[in-house]
Write a protein that binds this DNA or RNA. Structure first.
Lengths: 339, 339
DNA sequence: TGTCAACACGAAAACGGTTTCGTTGAATAT
DNA sequence: ATATTCAACGAAACCGTTTTCGTGTTGACA
């Protein structure tokens, strides 16, 4: 077990000062060729690597970015993290991941843990409980301290910061329009409660498309689930009662489960009933039939978020200008609709 | 924008020394009631929080643990991270996630980045390229420096450290046995190349179960895919050529895709052909029919890994004793086999 | 009244770097 | 021979804590 070597060790061994070693390793003009070569050779030999913590303390930059998300098992968040990680890593940053598990308290605790010097900025997506509660003081505190924050997907307009979202309303609108164009007459929506910013936007897009159509929108064709958890009975009852010929679901799971239900009833997909979901995950791709979805481009979203955050972190300027980047969703056509 | 307040600020404001402030905040006996109350009140008022970086530098403990995994989009790794995160967080640790993306070089770079003070220990699962190459010098260097490492799932026996695995051989053995007990006669295996430690173990279990049976094992009933990527044509050809009545797959995706292929051919699942996969992910649960799988208990695995790592990090003792924890897989019975 | 604890606090080193600002000695200019 | 310049290096401050080791003041006791 060979412990890590420090500048002090090198200085002692070579009988020069710590400053000289530091400068020599940075190839400073101040130091003679001889000394530089000697120091660098020694450093290489003993595999000297500067201590990140010491450097962080000195320049008040950690090169870490904190990511606080509700869940990691959901495919969408997973792809976002990957996007963040790839981009951040390429720029020399590490990613600290914290899970709020949809809990307001955990979100607060995690942010507090990280805000005390551990990170240079936050990328986050709000916990459902936070959006429900509408309490964003923990975010305000962090931004007040001058720590940059980028909000993605589940955002709030009450905080001034950079944001990255996809146009959920447009995605739902296009999906619904697709159904209408295909001659579907009873188009249902299975969603979650409106406190989630994304669900709200999707419902809006669905509603708008139907209102613009001849048939108009009908409140009773919308099933609002109280949480993200599957309530299998609720979906079953809803589908039996309404007998839609097209269903838009706010996630993959609702859609795939619904497809199975109607298949058991003997309905054909997409002839008798068509489906479109949100999130282009593994489930959609391998479902039977494969599921048409509104792709959210999570990886791209992560990359954009990381870019915005790091740019802000590294910009000396204290401009208080924030932008909201809106990514366009795309419809990935698969076998759950006619084509 | 109110910047963070430091001990020095409090000391200046209250006209005491920094040491006094530090002690007062720690409720030291050395400090008088009066002073302590004054300092604590002031600290509360200005929301003083100690700087993590400074503390890290002082006690050479970061309370961060580095997790280096091949991929995050795979459900299994995702659940492991969740397990790590939950447990680590409960013990006051943060999790820094790095992705090797199955690349040896990225694995090395990530470890080097983190090893210079950023973390107290590593939890990792080896990149396929690393296992293929058999080069573990980057791990050796880290352990030589006294940094604790816990390897999970994709491990190597060439490094002395704690390990957490599931008994992949047993899982495959049990699954294969299940097929045999159900009277299946042509039991196939779809796996990846043997350099992955887990694939190797699973193949071994499959082989053992068949050898113990009357029918014996047959090399030609094994399809080895060169990588984790889906090669749809290879699977199709294999299934058409061998016409198995039972298929064990080393992951969900191979299984679900194979199921769809045979369904298109008009075969009934599980009567004509049964399936068992590995990894109890969202795909298995919502596939049609739902897929019987060997559950790997990723979350438990993450939790165990984190426990072992943190215990080692916090133990002053320099015991050089390492243990390998073997988790038992369990068969989750669903509709892709008779029951 | 002198001595000694006990109390309450401060100075300073340490963690491992970076960086500014001397300081030294030799070479050059005058 | 003296003043000036420059190359090469070191001392020390600093980042924000913790912690050890004084130190001055007070009160009690002989």
């Amino acid at each position: 077990m060979k412990a890590k070597i420090t500048l002090k060790d090198i200085a002692r061994e070579l009988e020069v000062s710590i400053s000289t070693v530091s400068k020599a390793l940075k190839n400073s003009e101040e130091i003679s060729r001889d000394t530089k070569e000697k120091v660098q050779a020694f450093a290489k030999l003993y595999n000297y690597k500067p201590n990140n913590i010491a450097i962080s303390l000195k320049n008040k930059r950690t090169k870490n970015i904190g990511v606080v998300i509700p869940d990691i098992v959901h495919h969408f968040f997973t792809t976002v993290i990957r996007g963040i990680e790839k981009y951040a890593n390429a720029r020399g940053y590490n990613v600290i991941v914290c899970l709020s598990e949809e809990s307001f308290d955990k979100e607060v605790i995690n942010m507090e843990m990280l805000a005390n010097g551990s990170i240079d900025g936050f990328i986050m997506s709000l916990a459902s409980q936070t959006q429900e509660k509408g309490d964003y003081n923990h975010l305000k505190e962090v931004t007040d301290q001058g720590i940059p924050v980028v909000l993605f997907d589940r955002i709030t307009h009450e905080i001034d910061c950079d944001k990255v979202i996809i146009d959920d309303e447009l995605g739902a609108y296009q999906a619904t329009k697709k159904f209408i164009d295909q001659g579907k007459k009873k188009i249902a929506l299975i969603t979650t409660d409106d406190y989630l910013s994304v669900s709200k936007a999707r419902t809006k897009g669905y509603w708008k498309a139907l209102q613009e159509s001849e048939m108009g929108a009908d409140e009773s064709m919308i099933l609002k689930m109280p949480s993200m958890e599957m309530d299998e009975a609720a979906i079953k009852d809803f589908l039996n009662a309404k007998e839609p010929d097209a269903v838009l679901c706010v996630n993959e799971i609702f859609a795939v489960y619904s497809m199975r239900l109607v298949q058991e009833k003997g309905l054909r997909i997409p002839e008798d009933i068509a489906f479109i979901g949100f999130t282009d995950g593994v489930l959609s791709k391998y479902a039977n039939p494969s599921l048409t979805v509104v792709a959210q481009h999570g990886e791209k979203m992560g990359e954009e978020s990381a870019r915005m955050l790091i740019d802000k972190v590294e910009s000396e300027a204290e401009e208080e200008t924030y932008q909201t980047k809106i990514l366009e969703p795309t419809l990935v056509i698969r076998d759950s609709i006619a084509h």
